[in-house]
Nucleic acid binder design. Structure first.
Lengths: 241, 241
DNA sequence: ATAATATTCTATAGATTATTAGAATATACA
DNA sequence: TGTATATTCTAATAATCTATAGAATATTAT
């Protein structure tokens, strides 16, 4: 094995991972799977892909060993292979953010005021939660809250915030968090809350980032009366790292 | 701007960076540029690409803002846009290394004994250098040594090691380092040194990794009589971070 | 100015990838 | 066992990417 063929073989392997990250739809799928495992149909629905096409993308990711799949009944569930995959994905996003000014333009175009952009950091949130200074809302779809959430958060799915608006206390600031720094669930929630007169901010990052930073993640107890409480309820048990 | 077009626009930007990492030849170019800036022709020569093709790859990298170029006379020099580009590149390599067993097979195929694989870590090298326990050889091409090297290293380009073999002291272990974890210059040097009866190991990583970890990097003084000393000489001035 | 050199641009052919629709496969359920 | 469902596979097409050769551009040297 000479140097050239050794290098060619090696870089070809590294490029397998690079190629997996080379499609906008696959990046969106990775972001989605960072919230927890999902069957093909759910991936297709959330990304706007046909089922066949979503399946094909998932297999590109699987061949690059970035995702694993397990079959349960009729459905095949896909999930990120490990936390390092998420970390590399977010590192790529972060590099893109610092190098490509276009990303700033896109995010700004969604916001009404520059103030909307400001998010609270994870350590600051941790502090303020311990001092009971804030109300924390998980504004992702309910299933993702069940799969794991920040201890103390209330589950308020995006389409249910409006109906719960008046029940929230007005003497504390409200923090909303969602899937990640570019996810709009929390941004939209903050906008609604401010329109209703609340003090509200979003968490700058999302749940998977919170987890990857080593902060605790809670899960509701299996026997909990989740559905009975109108989708708003606090956490119970803690997850191991 | 609705959620779907916002997401599409964002992930399309992230994918610009992903696509830049999606070619084995571009990864090899990034690895090369991590040693320092280079004109197009040098990139073409080291990667086995035609000049036109190398130029095209470099422009893909430039459009993704991963490299910058500057024109000096007739030549266009390319370099990594910043240290974060190198860090993401190595993170991708590291993820590929842990996820793809094929990479282990390729690296093993080059080694005669498993012992050849073992490299010393940067902190350990730092300690042993301070105690003067080892001789350190920079076995990259001389120009790269000039662009920056580990303080105390001697420059011994790959094709000159043989002629200097007998000049090295036999009472200390010899450490060789090169461009990175998968670069073969140090591996080959260690093999030659062991055949000649020396105790020798390679540094596990390379100079850019040493720099990225925050260890000091030295440059020879401009007025130094570099060429007069047969390409073996110690460092002088230190580089700022 | 003219010639030489380095690089980029253009055109093109070939290879790879993305997408869709529909067939095939495997499991669950009646 | 037969039927419904979820997913993967296959085939066809469109789109994108890679590589090459040669033309065009810009700079240096004569």
């Amino acid at each position: 094995m000479n140097h050239r063929s050794y290098k060619d073989a090696l870089y070809a392997q590294f490029a397998r991972v690079g190629k997996a990250f080379a499609s906008d739809k696959r990046l969106e799928i990775l972001d989605l799977l960072a919230q927890g495992e999902r069957p093909v149909e759910a991936v297709a629905q959330e990304t706007g892909l046909t089922i066949g096409n979503a399946s094909a993308h998932l297999q590109v990711l699987r061949r690059a060993r970035l995702v694993d799949s397990r079959k349960d009944g009729q459905q095949v569930y896909y999930q990120l292979a490990d936390q390092d995959v998420f970390r590399l994905f977010r590192s790529l996003e972060a590099l893109a953010q610092t190098r490509l000014t276009e990303i700033d333009q896109i995010t700004r175009s969604y916001y009404e005021s520059p103030q909307d952009l400001e998010g609270i950091s994870a350590p600051e949130l941790q502090d303020r939660l311990q001092d009971n200074e804030v109300i924390l809302l998980d504004v992702r779809p309910h299933a993702e809250y069940v799969a794991g959430h920040i201890p103390g958060a209330l589950s308020v799915p995006p389409d249910e915030l409006q109906q719960h608006l008046e029940k929230l206390p007005r003497d504390q600031e409200i923090i909303a968090y969602c899937r990640g720094p570019y996810c709009l669930f929390a941004t939209d929630a903050v906008r609604q809350l401010r329109h209703a007169g609340y003090r509200a901010r979003r968490l700058a990052l999302g749940l998977p980032d919170w987890r990857a930073s080593g902060f605790p993640v809670a899960k509701p107890k299996p026997a909990d009366n989740c559905l009975a409480t109108g989708n708003i309820y606090p956490d119970t048990a803690h997850e191991g790292t």
